[in-house]
Amino acid sequence: MNRTFDTTDDTKAALSQEALAELGGGQVAYMKPLNGDEVRSLFPDAPQLSHDHKLWALLSADGTPIMLSDSREAVIANAQQNDLHMATVH
C-alpha cells in the first residue's frame, strides 16, 4: 500500500513499506474484509476456505497481519484492547 502526497511540481511521492510502518509507530492498524481465497495470502497457516467465506483481518500500518475473525466487531474490539488507532483505508 502506498500513500501519495501532492508536491509542488504535480508529481506524486510514495511512502515505502518501511516508512509507512514507522509512520504508525506500531499504534496504527486497519481492517480489511477478505474472502476465503484471500485469507491464505495473509495467514498461510489458515485452513482452506471456500471463496464465499467472508472474514475480517486486522493489519498493522505496514500490512502485517495481526488477527483474523469472522466478526467485524471482534476486530474492532481487539484493536481497542491493544490501544491501536484504526485508520480508514479506501
Rank of each mutant, 00 (worst) to 15 (best):
I76A: 04
I76C: 03
N78Q: 09
L68Y: 06
S16W: 06
V28A: 01
Q80I: 12
L68H: 04
M86D: 11
D52P: 14
L55V: 11
N78C: 15
A79P: 06
A14G: 07
M1Q: 10
L15D: 11
K32A: 05
E18W: 13
L23I: 02
T8N: 13
H90G: 15
V75L: 12
A61M: 06
F5S: 11
V28I: 09
E22G: 06
G25W: 05
A14R: 08
K32V: 05
A74L: 01
L68R: 00
A57V: 01
R3N: 08
P44D: 03
A79S: 03
Q80M: 11
A29K: 00
M67D: 05
T11F: 12
M31A: 12
M1W: 02
D37F: 07
V28S: 07
L23Q: 09
A46K: 08
K12V: 02
A13K: 12
Q17K: 06
L20V: 03
D9N: 13
A29H: 00
N78F: 15
Q17D: 14
S71F: 03
G25Q: 03
R72G: 14
S69A: 10
P33A: 04
E18C: 14
E73Y: 01
K54V: 12
H51I: 10
P47N: 06
A87N: 05
